[in-house]
Write a protein that binds this DNA or RNA. Sequence first.
DNA 1: AGAAAACTTGGGAACGTTCCCAAGAAAAAG
DNA 2: CTTTTTCTTGGGAACGTTCCCAAGTTTTCT
Lengths: 335, 335
Amino acid sequence: MGMTIKEIAKLAGVSKSTVSRVINDAEHVSDKARKKVQQVIEETGYIPNSIAKDLKRNSTNSIGVIVPRINTSTISSAVEGISNIMYDNGYNLLLTNTRLDIKEEIKYLELLKEKRVSGILFFATELTSKHLETLNKIDLPVVVLGQDISEIVDFPCVIHDDFNSAKDIAKYLVKQGHQRIAYIGVQEYDIAVGQLRKKGYAEALTENNLEVPEEYLYKGDFSINSGYEGMKEIIESSRQLPTAVFAVTDSLALGAIKYLKERDYQVPEDISVVGIGNSDISSWITPELTTVDYDHLKAGEEASKILLKYITGDKFKGKLLMDYHIIERESVKKI
Amino acid sequence: MGMTIKEIAKLAGVSKSTVSRVINDAEHVSDKARKKVQQVIEETGYIPNSIAKDLKRNSTNSIGVIVPRINTSTISSAVEGISNIMYDNGYNLLLTNTRLDIKEEIKYLELLKEKRVSGILFFATELTSKHLETLNKIDLPVVVLGQDISEIVDFPCVIHDDFNSAKDIAKYLVKQGHQRIAYIGVQEYDIAVGQLRKKGYAEALTENNLEVPEEYLYKGDFSINSGYEGMKEIIESSRQLPTAVFAVTDSLALGAIKYLKERDYQVPEDISVVGIGNSDISSWITPELTTVDYDHLKAGEEASKILLKYITGDKFKGKLLMDYHIIERESVKKI
DNA sequence: AGAAAACTTGGGAACGTTCCCAAGAAAAAG
DNA sequence: CTTTTTCTTGGGAACGTTCCCAAGTTTTCT
């Protein structure tokens, strides 16, 4: 244990330079010397110290990742994608978890700089001025995931296309013949889900000259129960029932379906329902949910590729909108 | 940028020793010097280089984590637990993902040693002799998660109590009055799920003097479809139908329920079903599934605590069996 | 006031590598 | 056989810290 290059050199009867050359299989080493060194390394179980190496080289092959949580399918899939690309390119992941505490983000940004990571993948939540200051200070390539902050700060962003996907699945409902489409959403301080998806829904309807009565609109939180309550309120307050429901997430759709089932409405025969997100549940429930699939794994991969280029000096400008696709399953009926 | 302690020292008009003392807020620094240094650090945005520090100190505050995948709820929850404990104790996570490739495990074990991590949390799959050799060679504290290898190799293991939990939920069925309990399992090369859970089931029944006819036993794979097929086979081949089904995972239970529903058997009125694992789906399906909950997050936390002690020289011997509890929901009827 | 104690400070070696440079050895060219 | 070229080798500085030690300064005590 605690072997160093120097000791290997002594044992092999060569200089540490030669050992270094063997380790990094560089040129200018005779076969004889190489063999001998390899043998000694093998025998002693020597494993080089990459801390020393990193110090000398003044660079690491580590990438910092900042997430607000790990055990969500969205984030863990993205991290899986990140690890795919990064490992293939010889980088390691230094994973930090803010546990939804914004102040920790600042701390971890600095910590990752201390560790001299080559770049950072940052799952952003909110952006304060303190963030901007820190991002500036650490002077590292950063790619932001999940939030579009490309207008506030000059870092590449990788985001899902909330607006167009919402619009498309709303258009899909219209195309299936639906004219009365209710909306179950969330508060608008959430930009992606609360604003963009709603805007997509609204635009799809107006473009098709469809009006939305006030009583078709519900805004709650992200819980399943909120979907249940929303559906209840819409059903109870509508003079004429909608033929379809546009829920802004799969959980909300699930809650809506639960309520409908309880009241003996058939889905999709009486009322069609769509969600967004293609969560695990969406394919387990009956009827299987028609929804929008975002490819989180691929988002992680794309963000990684952008970061790698950034590190080598080729900076992506603006934001990358990820692809999506509608998964047609059983919860929508053509009328 | 690229500031060093030396440059800060020059700017502050002190020696680098003094700057070092300020950074590590050590004693023996006059207020005046401290103020001045802090001011210069603030102005220049200097962030210390922890690579140099680690090299000098000959230790890092990093923990290596080796996982076979990231985006499963089991693993991501465990990693969340790990990050909780580790961050609270000042450690960072170096995350490596083998993508189910056993050879990569060896590679990552060595890589983490190169990085001079303080310890490793290893989600093991299989253990080859090459593994043992490498584990030996790297000479680091390692805690193994998810597999009981405490008899083969002298590292602490943290595992779920497959045997007792299976036995308990089988006993629960008996207690609810069930006498004819069918079994849907998996092949026995999987020790935890294939062997231990089956053993728990078998023991619960024999202890209650219940016999199991051969046609009540089915062995497939881990897929939902396998649960479906298993249920089908059991129903079709039994002279007398079972009143309950013990499925070795939630997915299998789900498949079984799917088949029963299709054939218009009521769950749990006609046949009760239990699973194991408390997967996400288990609470979404109708009827909600009675199952066993393993606390993966806590397993990660406990493993982390054991590793931290190990690092400070206090090695846990043998294996830690995690707690579990039965979640009673709707899929079992008392008879 | 002088001695002792306590605090403050700076210099320099060390951590384990890499990589430049110079020198020695071998091979090729004349 | 000498000169040039190419290959191989080792020595040592450097990367940015920490930490020991010695020296200088201030405070406390008698």
